[in-house]
Design a binder for these strands. Structure first.
Lengths: 216, 216
DNA sequence: TTTATATCGATATAAAAATACCGATATCGA
DNA sequence: TCGATATCGGTATTTTTATATCGATATAAA
């Protein structure tokens, strides 16, 4: 009976921030760091940092803080960077290519073993070392290779079809970049990447920020 | 004294989902829709939908629901799709190109007036109708054109430099795709797009989902 | 005209997240 | 050796967000 820890998304965002901070620390710096120092660098509350770290690390020590090397390892483990999950990507357009190129997924524990695209000029070629395959083979290939993760970067009008093929092939997790709500069985998890919403949020914050200027 | 309404990010995500749902409804469908129906289609709670819509729309009617046409207009307004904010993009690599191509930002109320890239082969050319300019001109161009939004799609090691140039040019909002925590003055708002965290979240949910299988 | 029902919107409760507070402890300096 | 201090980690409080409940109302049917 596995406990349901279920760290919330904002916490993953923060953990990821801690990690980039820690990793880019100069080698000459101290071997340990306090939650307070991390919080200050990122401009967030120190209790949040301590709580996040408590949930995933082996703990820090009073007056010392956390050992950076251990902390990096613990965060990487929490983020799954030390496990190699296999995935396929569907849609090798601009966004698909960008993702294939993006920081080499392997660093984040993801191994994209194949990419599908219906463009006949692409099929058979390689992009960033990933072979482009005919989408007709989605189900078959996913089944044979026991792939569990699918990345959807096709236009919205083919996204549901692609999604269905992935699910038929046994995919259990979908990272969806198409601006559409995909319908999947209950046992398939989805993470939607909603650029329009992010943009709207930013624009709104900008408006508020400028309104604040004017009220002062 | 403007009130601080400050709709949270998840609400923007939902509003965006409502919008795509409503817009792709067949023209033959009814002219009105209930919050319950929207909720069911998206697999979320109906009270959440009603609350979201109450905060941005002119309201629905018992037994009828909301008039779809009006609702679309209200949501678009809330998301800022009916205002044309001008922005610049820095980094016309794969991701930058993908964003320039992505669903034509104009639909979302964003007008990318220039893109910067240090690659001499790109400078002076156009991508998706957007001119590529030397990054040395970031500050000058942003100032002259009174641009308020900057999109950063450069590698992490040049992100802070680019960010500083944008801020120097008067940028007040930054949409950051580089995996780094940018330091900005207090009056500049930032929206980080953290792919690594999204991926980690999805992977973790997948693990939980599979663990659930095995416990049954 | 009257009754039944779908649906809204307001209020109330519950859950989750962020923040504050405080005692415990490991190191450093006296 | 002993006290001062930084910092952790647990508990408590507040805030935010999500969910449930319920009366009010507009339409449709009887």
């Amino acid at each position: 009976m596995a406990e349901k820890l279920s760290i919330p998304l904002p916490a993953y965002n923060r953990l990821s921030m801690y990690l980039t901070c820690l990793k880019r620390r100069p080698a000459t710096a101290a071997a340990n760091i306090s939650a307070t120092a991390i919080a200050e660098e990122l401009g967030i509350n120190d209790v949040v940092v301590r709580k996040d770290l408590a949930s995933i690390s082996s703990g820090g020590k009073p007056k010392i803080g956390y050992i950076i090397e251990d902390l990096i390892r613990d965060i990487e483990h929490a983020l799954g960077h030390d496990t190699a999950a296999e995935a396929v990507l569907v849609g090798a357009g601009n966004l698909g290519k960008a993702l294939l190129a993006y920081s080499n997924f392997e660093k984040y524990g993801l191994n994209v073993v194949a990419a599908f695209d219906s463009n006949p000029n692409l099929i058979g070629k390689e992009i960033q070392g990933t072979k482009i395959v005919d989408p007709a083979r989605i189900q078959d290939l996913c089944e044979r290779m026991h792939i569990k993760i699918g990345i959807i970067t096709v236009p919205f009008d083919s996204a549901q079809t692609v999604c269905d093929a992935l699910v038929a092939g046994g995919i259990r997790a979908i990272w969806n970049f198409a601006p559409i709500h995909l319908k999947v069985p209950e046992n398939v998890v989805i993470k939607n990447e909603n650029m329009a919403a992010s943009l709207a949020f930013l624009t709104k914050q900008l408006e508020e920020s400028i309104a604040k200027d004017n009220s002062n």
